[in-house]
Design a protein around this nucleic acid. Structure first.
Lengths: 280, 280
DNA sequence: TCAAAAAATTCCAACATACGGAATATCGAG
DNA sequence: CTCGATATTCCGTATGTTGGAATTTTTTGA
C-alpha cells in the first residue's frame, strides 16, 4: 500500500497501472506472454507485483467474461475464445484489413509466395494479415498479430524509411537501443538501408533474420500520403532472381497503390456488417 | 442504473456487469458490435446503460492500454491494435489453432476449397481459422472469429451432433428459440439432421445459408473423445458430386484424426514460443 | 501412503477509487 | 452568432477494491 508500485520486475509491465481495468488488462498481457502453456495465479501475482487475492478476483471477472479460460484441474489460466472473437473485429484498421484481404489472397496466388500486410504501431510494426504461398517452404515467422521493431525486416524497414523525417528520427532513437542484442544492426547500417529504400521506393534484401530467406516490400500510403503500412513477401533467397525481383516489385506496387486508393480512413461506407458472419 | 434488462446477447454474459473490469470489457464488446465505423461515447453510454462520465473514464483507461484507438477529431472510438495483438495469441485453443494451421493449408491446397476450423464455445461455434481455396468462387462468410449458433451450418451441426446426449439437449433447448427468425429450422428438422450426421459421422448438405453453396464437415475429437471442433469445407454445390463427396469426407476424416491424435490438451511440450515472432 | 509445503480460494474490515450528478468546455448545425 | 448536442472535467459520496489472515485444495517429498 504505502509502497508506490516501483515496477520492480519484468519489463513490459507499465509502471503506473492504476485502475483495476488496467490491472485486468495487464493480467491478460501477462497471460499472453506466458505462451500456450497457461499461467498460474501465483506466477501472475509475482510477475505483476500484485497480491494473490487481487489477481484471483480479477481473473474471476475475466473468466466470467470469457476473456480467459480456466482449467479447473490444471489451475492454469489461458487467453479465452471471447478475446479471440473480440480481436477478430479489431480495430482501427479493421477496414484496412478487410479491404486488403482479397488483395493478399490474389497476390499469394499470383506470386506463389507468402504475402504479409504490416501496419505501423508506435515504434513497432504489426503483422495484420498474411496469405500463405503454395510452397511448403515458407517462413513461420511473421504470424498474424506478431510484432517487430520498426527497422527489422523488409516490410518494417519500408514503413520506417517512408516516415516523415522527424518521426523517423524519433523511431530510430527509440529503437536503436532496443536493437542491442541483434549485433549486425548499428546506426550507420540502418541509416544506409533506410536511404536506399527511400531512394528505390521499395525494400529488398536477404532478411538476415532467417538464413536463406529474403523479403521484398513496398509501402502503403494513406490518403494523406503517410506510410501507414507495407505489403511484403517472404521467399527463399535463391528463388528471387534480379529479373523476378523487378516483376515482384512491380506487382506489389500496383496492389499497394490499389489499397492506398481505397484507403479512406473516415468513409463510413467502408464499414462492413462487422459482426459475426454465418459459417458455411 | 435501473435495469437495462434484456441484453439478449450471449448466454455466458451476466446482465448485471458488476466490476469495473467487466464494465470495461462490456465497452470493448459494444465497440466491436458497432463495426468498423467506430462508436461514439454517448452511443456506448446509452447501449450499456452507463453514464457518460463512467464510459469516458473507462474509455480513457482502455485507450491508455492501447486496446482502443481514439480519433481525436471524429470523436469515435474503435478497437485498437493491441487488442488485435493480444488475441492473436489467444487462447486456450492457441495450441489447437497453431497445430491445425498447416493441416488447413494442406487441405485447402489438396481439395482446392476453402477450409474452416470451428470450435465449440458454449452454445455457439466459433471459426478459429480458415484457409482459402484457390478459386475465386468462395464464401465470404465464416470469417475468422465469426460466431454461429450450434446447429447452423455443417461444421457447427457436426459438433452439435457429436455432443453427449444431455449437452446436446441443453444446446437445442437454448438455441431453438434463437433460431426463430431463420424460418426453415424447426425442432423436427434439426433433430432429423442431427440423427443423420451422427449416423454418418459427417455432415454434408447445401448450406441453406448461401444459395448455391454446400458444406462438408467432420468432427474433431479431443483425447477424452469429446467433439470439440470441426473441420469443414465450403464449396459451390455443383462442384460437389457424390463421388467427390466420398473423397472429400475421407480426406477430411484422415486429417481430423491427425488433429485428434496431436490434441493433448495438457501437454506443455506443445507450447510455442508464443510471443512476437520476427517478420520477414 | 501419509505428512508437510505450496498454491488456490474465501473472508472481511479498512480504505481507496470508481461512480454519477452537475458544471464546463467543445463541437456542429442553423 | 446562437443554440442544442456531445465530450470532458470536477468532486463528494458510497461502492467496489484491496491485501492480510484464515481456509481449503493440490502438489511435493519421504
Amino acid at each position: 500500500m504505502t509502497e508506490p508500485a516501483d515496477d520492480p520486475r519484468r519489463p513490459g509491465a507499465d509502471a503506473g497501472s492504476k485502475t483495476s481495468l488496467q490491472r485486468g488488462i495487464a493480467i491478460l498481457r501477462a497471460i499472453a506472454a506466458h505462451g500456450g502453456t497457461g499461467a498460474r495465479l501465483t506466477d501472475l501475482a509475482r510477475d505483476l507485483g500484485m497480491t494473490p487475492p487481487t489477481v484471483h478476483r480479477l481473473l474471476k471477472a475475466l473468466v466470467a467474461e470469457g476473456m480467459i479460460d480456466h482449467d479447473p484441474q490444471g489451475k492454469r489460466y489461458r487467453l479465452g475464445l471471447d478475446l479471440f472473437v473480440l480481436a477478430a473485429q479489431a480495430g482501427s484498421c479493421g477496414t484496412l484489413r478487410d479491404m486488403a484481404r482479397p488483395i493478399l489472397l490474389r497476390l499469394s496466388a499470383t506470386l506463389r509466395e507468402t504475402v504479409f500486410l504490416l501496419v505501423r504501431n508506435g515504434f513497432d510494426a504489426i503483422c495484420l494479415d498474411r496469405a500463405e504461398g503454395p510452397f511448403p517452404i515458407r517462413s513461420f515467422t511473421g504470424d498474424i498479430g506478431g510484432r517487430v521493431m520498426l527497422g527489422i525486416g523488409q516490410g518494417s524497414l519500408t514503413i520506417l524509411a517512408h516516415l516523415p523525417e522527424d518521426e523517423q528520427q524519433e523511431v530510430i532513437r527509440f529503437n536503436l537501443p532496443r536493437m542491442q542484442g541483434m549485433g549486425f544492426l548499428d546506426e550507420v547500417y540502418l541509416r544506409t538501408a533506410i536511404a536506399k529504400v527511400k531512394a528505390q521506393g521499395y525494400s529488398s534484401q536477404h532478411s538476415g533474420l532467417l538464413p536463406g530467406m529474403s523479403g521484398v516490400a513496398v509501402p502503403v500510403f494513406d490518403r494523406q500520403g503517410r506510410a501507414v503500412a507495407a505489403l511484403s513477401i517472404g521467399t527463399p533467397t535463391d528463388r528471387l532472381t534480379d529479373e523476378r525481383l523487378t516483376v515482384v516489385v512491380d506487382i506489389l506496387r500496383r496492389e499497394a497503390a490499389g489499397i492506398s486508393r481505397q484507403l479512406n480512413p473516415f468513409d463510413p461506407a467502408l464499414s462492413r456488417s462487422g459482426v459475426s458472419g454465418s459459417i458455411v
